[in-house]
Structure formats: structure tokens, C-alpha cells
Computed example of a mutant assay.
Amino acid sequence: MDHQTGEDDGIVRFWHDDEGWGVIDSPSTPGGCWTHFSAIEAEGFRSLTPGARVRLHWESPGQDGYNYRATWTH
């Protein structure tokens, strides 16, 4: 897959607080977009809630078996 980037709205599929990562589903990232707590724009403890709507910037290739990786999430 060539390097691509984009921005979209998505919904958090799942989040692992103990490991600091999760997956966001969006129309632009079929199969899910891997995200890490370091990409979350927030103060204090950075976490996402499953089912929450978020805005994300993404890139490919992804990480850990996902074709896409979030570079910014809000």
C-alpha cells in the first residue's frame, strides 16, 4: 500500500486503557484505524471511549495488522 493520508470522522470500536491503544472505524479507513494514546489531543490521562465519535487524521501504511494508523485524534 502506498503512503496515504487523510482526515475523517470515526467511531471508537475498542480501547485498551492498560495498553494505551485502540481502533477507530471510519469510512476512509476500512478494516479499522489503529491509534495510540500519544495521538489523542487532550489534557491529563488520554483515553478513548468505545462508541464515541472522534475526528482523526490518519496515514497508511498502518500498524499492528491494521492498514491505517491515526496520527491525531480529537
Rank of each mutant, 00 (worst) to 15 (best):
M1H: 00
M1L: 08
D2K: 07
D2R: 13
Q4C: 04
G6M: 05
E7W: 15
E7Y: 13
E7A: 13
D9V: 14
D9F: 10
D9H: 04
I11Q: 12
I11V: 15
R13L: 06
F14Y: 15
W15I: 00
W15E: 02
H16C: 07
H16A: 02
H16I: 14
H16T: 01
D17L: 00
D17V: 12
D17W: 13
D18R: 09
D18V: 09
D18M: 10
E19W: 03
G20A: 09
W21E: 08
G22P: 12
I24E: 03
I24A: 01
I24T: 01
I24D: 00
D25Q: 07
D25I: 02
D25C: 14
S26T: 14
P27S: 11
P27G: 10
T29Y: 05
G32M: 14
G32L: 09
G32R: 07
C33L: 12
W34K: 04
W34I: 00
W34P: 00
T35S: 13
T35E: 05
T35I: 15
F37T: 00
S38A: 13
S38W: 02
S38D: 08
A39Q: 06
A39Y: 06
I40Y: 15
I40E: 02
E41L: 01
A42Y: 02
A42G: 00
E43F: 05
G44I: 00
F45P: 09
S47F: 01
L48M: 11
L48C: 12
T49Y: 00
T49I: 13
T49M: 10
G51E: 06
A52M: 11
A52I: 01
R53A: 10
R53G: 08
V54D: 10
V54L: 02
V54M: 05
R55V: 05
R55L: 06
L56A: 00
W58A: 04
W58V: 02
W58D: 00
E59D: 03
S60V: 06
S60G: 12
P61A: 10
P61D: 06
G62N: 14
G62C: 05
G62Y: 02
Q63H: 14
D64I: 07
Y66T: 02
Y66G: 08
Y68Q: 08
Y68E: 03
R69W: 06
A70M: 06
A70K: 15
H74D: 07
H74S: 09
